[in-house]
Every structure is written in C-alpha cells, then in structure tokens.
Amino acid sequence: MRSRTRKISLIAAGIVAASLLGAAAAVAAPGIGNGWPYNTAAKGDDAKTYTLAAVGDIACEPDDSANTANPAALKCGSPSLGGYAAEFATAKQADAMKPDAVALLGDEQYQVGKLSDFEGSFEQAWGGLKFLERPAPGNHEYYSYTKKGDNEAGQNGNGYFAYFNGHDQAGTPNTSGQAGNDTSANQGWYSYDLGNWHIISLNAECNSAAFANDCSTSDSGLLAQETEWLASDLQNNHQQCTIAYWHQPTFSATTASTATVAASAPGAGGQEGQVTDDWWKLLYANHATLILNGHEHAYARFKPMDPAGQYDPKSGIPEIIIGTGGEALDALATNADGSYANPNVVTAYNQGYGTMKLTLKQHSYAFSYAPALQGAGLSASALDYSDSGSGACKG
C-alpha cells in the first residue's frame, strides 16, 4: 500500500499553536512586533527565505516514578549526560533562530520514548516549539533498551506518536498528525514544503516489531513500501531544492573502521545506515540538496558524496550529522595521526551541544552551527567551535 504524500501547512499549524499555547508558550503571540513565527508569507511563496532548525538526540530520561527501577546513570541528573541543562540550552538556541520549522532527527526522547518520558523531559525544554517541530523517529523511540543494567521494552513508536500526534484518554496515539501516519502501512514518513524547498522525513527503525523486523528495501515489507513511497514522492516533487532526513546516518563519523566495513563505506554505523543507502541512491538520482541525520552524538559535516561514499563535487550530496541535542557525546573516529577515519568528513565536533540553523533561499542555502553548552567537565573554551557555509540546489 502506498501512502499519499502529506503536505503539512505551517500556517495552519501556527494558528492551532497560537490558540492552544497562548502567552505561556516560548513563541511570540500574534501581533507582537516581528510576529514570529506565524505571520510568515503565504505557503508556496518561493521567493521568501525560510529558517529551518535541525537537531537530534535530545532529551534525557526523567527521574520519575515510571523510571524508578532504571539505573540513575541513564536518567536526568547523571553527571555523564547533558541532562536538562543541555536540552534547555539547545531549545533556547533553536527558539532564538525564530524558525519556520524544526527538523528533529530522531531519538528525541531517551531511553525508550514512553509518553510519560516525553511529557517529563522533552516537553519541558522543547514544548514551546512543538507545533513547528517536524520529527523523524530514532531507535530509542522504537527499540528496547537493555544496556547498562536497564531492561525497558521497546515502544514501537507509541510514545512518539502519542506525543506529537496526540492521543485518546487511554493514551492510544492518533492515527495521523504532525509526525505522519501511525498505521500498519505507514510508520510516520511524510514530506512538506517550505517555499521552493521540498523536505522529507523518513523512518529507518526497521529492526522493530512495527516493521516485522524486516530491513529489506526490495521485498513486500514495510521498509520496502516506504522506499517505494520515497521514489514516488521524489518523482512527483516539482520543487528545485530537496532535503531528506532520518536518524541513523549512512556514512559514519564516530564509528572506527573494522576489518569488514571501512568508516567511509555505507552502513559503517549500523544496519539501518546500511539499508538506507538505497534511499541515498534515490535521492542522488533526483538531485537532492542535503541529507541530515542524528544517532551519532556529535556534529559532523561531510563532503558531497555519491551513494557509494565517494567524493563527488559535481553531483554528490553533503551529509550533515547533528546528534548534539542534549543527551550525551560520542568519541569521534580518528586514525593514529589524528585525521578522521572517514576521509569525507570536512569538520567534526563532540565537545558540546548545539542546533544547526539552515537558511533556505530560493535556489540556495546557508548553514551555521555553534554549540550552546559545553560537555560535562569541559571548560568554556569548548564553545569556541563553529561551522558555517553555503551551497546551491541541484534540482
């Protein structure tokens, strides 16, 4: 079954948000000065410049009654995690961008994304931007968590969809909403437009019960149906500029080379990244502009690449990993001489937490990234990093 492309109206979402959130929300009320973010030009105004904030891997697990049995090291307040301070810092940074939309790159809520976890942690920091948020799910929203003494059952997206799409009195998620459809035929993939930009949110969590643990992109399973939907969505897209995002990156910055998979090879970071190389092939053939991912708790920007991970300055797609939303930080994969294990990494950073700002113009884009809070035990000098640049659409 092929799902119809969902065109999400940011203007309509803004009207709902204004009526529901009122003056208590982080966003400005209508009629105040700049009127952000709802007094934007009409949807489809290709000449307008849009701001897209992007980040993943955000909220710590709340230390509440629902998580009493879980190890303290995995919950908000643990000295090894970014905790509330980090997720509030990145939310404040995103809020200051006055975005037209917020692309969330998965693992919005740790450890398994129960609805109560979303309400007790993610909501506290990022709830003021909720009706601008366009999420993709991550492994922590779908899979069980059995590491470090924990033993939590996987949610298969239930808490994720209940939070972003709403739910009934019993907590059952609505079947559709801003996180896409929650049905047996569609687990939350969708697309939306910002002016001349077509933006696609995908679900890579195929090794879950919701996908029947089937990670094939070519059989009759759900991931294959999603891949077929992506091909159709791209074929029917008439916008010049395209961004796609999902959680696990196809190309890695924090996973060192192994005896069988080089750091620059598709899927060096895991099974999901390997199978989503088929998405790369579709996006490459349709001249996509950018691919955004999370999962690796670092910031990394890659050279334009083809689907095999080869540098391709003419037709390649840059991948940007922005897994610095607040949860924790990973080690970067480097060689003995200090160079990046993946030679396509242009720059990478794992000393703090931050959100990327993408400025989407009619035929081009600009990007900027800077940390909002240093990692645990690091000095303020960790905030000295920044990355910025620009590029053109290829469509």
Rank of each mutant, 00 (worst) to 15 (best):
Y353I: 10
Q351M: 14
S381K: 15
T355W: 01
Q374M: 12
A382I: 08
Y385P: 07
K357M: 08
S368W: 09
G352A: 02
S364C: 12
T347N: 15
H363E: 09
G354L: 00
G354P: 00
Y369C: 10
L360T: 02
F367T: 09
S364W: 06
F367M: 08
Q374L: 10
G354F: 01
G377P: 00
G354I: 01
S381W: 04
S379Y: 08
H363I: 09
T359N: 12
S379D: 13
T355H: 00
T355R: 02
L360K: 03
A382P: 02
L378S: 04
A380K: 04
L360N: 03
H363T: 13
A376S: 08
A376L: 10
D387E: 08
F367G: 05
H363C: 11
T347L: 15
D384V: 13
Y353H: 01
A370D: 01
L383A: 11
N350D: 04
L383W: 14
A376C: 09
S364A: 10
M356R: 12
S386M: 07
Y369P: 04
Y353R: 04
D384W: 14
N350W: 03
G377N: 14
K357C: 04
Q362L: 07
Q362G: 09
K361F: 09
A382D: 07
M356F: 14
Q362Y: 03
Y385Q: 11
G375A: 05
N350V: 07
K361G: 07
Y353L: 05
P371E: 02
Q362C: 11
F367H: 14
Q374Y: 11
T359I: 15
Q362W: 05
H363M: 05
L373R: 05
P371N: 08
T355A: 01
D387M: 06
Y385F: 10
G354H: 00
P371V: 06
A380Q: 14
D387P: 09
Q374E: 08
L383M: 11
F367L: 13
K357S: 01
Y369W: 10
N350P: 02
K357T: 13
A370E: 01
D384Q: 11
Q362S: 12
L358I: 10
L383C: 15
T359H: 06
S368D: 12
A382N: 06
L358A: 07
S386K: 12
A372V: 10
G352H: 01
A366L: 06
